[in-house]
């Protein structure tokens, strides 16, 4: 790279429209501050190397004082999407829907309909699992299914870390670089987490898959 004027570029691009940058926290007007705002998505090999773990976090930047009153939205589905053949269309989904202080899970299954609109398909009721949503301040409640899947839902520390404040200062022209050490803007804040561990054999077995998470609201 030869040009050495990135700061001007940053300023021109971002200062007007971008108030906060984060992993996906408050990334767009329609979701900011709402129950459907995804803050982060993780996918990694589990403690048992035969398993993969999916993490979806929503409702970020919860202070400890506000965390006890935060709750999952019963009209909201959190859907993990898995593409096993590289076309960015989901071949399998794992759906999580909260009801009555429990998180209900469906899948992984091949959905009848792919894309931006989903249903909980009644044919999957029989294979569903649920876990009591862990209240703030309680030990993590974990459910393990007969098929070897594990489930958790409840508040956790936000695992994301970033010196957002300094990045903002750079964008606005008040600083020329990051500090060393930096300061984690997300330190001391919580999120609502859904964690699912699934045997690799249930999502393709080997090779590579594409994954992503969506929040979908009941219409």
């Amino acid at each position: 790279m030869k040009n050495f004027k990135p700061i001007l570029g940053i300023s021109l691009l971002l200062v007007a429209g971008l108030c906060v940058i984060a992993a996906d926290h408050i990334d767009a007007p329609a979701v900011t501050g709402g129950t459907s705002d995804i803050t982060d998505f993780y996918a990694f090999q589990g403690e048992n190397p035969d398993n993969v773990v999916f993490v979806a976090n929503v409702q970020g930047l919860l202070s400890p004082a506000n965390t006890a009153n935060a709750s999952f939205d019963e009209n909201l589905m959190i859907e993990f999407n898995i593409d096993t053949n590289g076309d960015a269309v989901e071949d399998l989904v794992i759906q999580a829907v909260p009801k009555n202080k429990k998180m209900f899970f469906f899948g992984p299954f091949a959905p009848d309909q792919t894309g931006t609109v989903s249903t909980v398909e009644p044919k999957n009721f029989g294979g569903s699992s649920n876990v009591k949503i862990t209240p703030f301040g309680s030990e993590a409640i974990v459910h393990t299914s007969d098929l070897g899947m594990k489930f958790f839902a409840g508040p956790r520390d936000d695992p994301f870390f970033f010196d957002f404040a300094q990045f903002t200062a750079i964008l606005s022209g008040n600083a020329g670089s990051f500090n060393d050490p930096g300061m984690d803007t997300f330190a001391g804040t919580n999120v609502l987490s859904v964690v699912v561990e699934v045997p690799k054999s249930m999502i393709g077995g080997s090779g590579s898959v594409n994954t992503w998470v969506e929040t979908k609201r009941k219409q």
């Binding site: 992993a23 996906d24 459907s36 969506e214 009941k218």
Partner: peptide, 18 residues
């Protein structure tokens, strides 16, 4: 669990939309 659910947020890699 009846009804249809329509997408509001989506995320694969961190910070992409932002």
């Amino acid at each position: 669990f009846s009804g249809t659910y329509a997408q509001e947020d989506q995320m694969g890699r961190p910070a992409v939309n932002t």
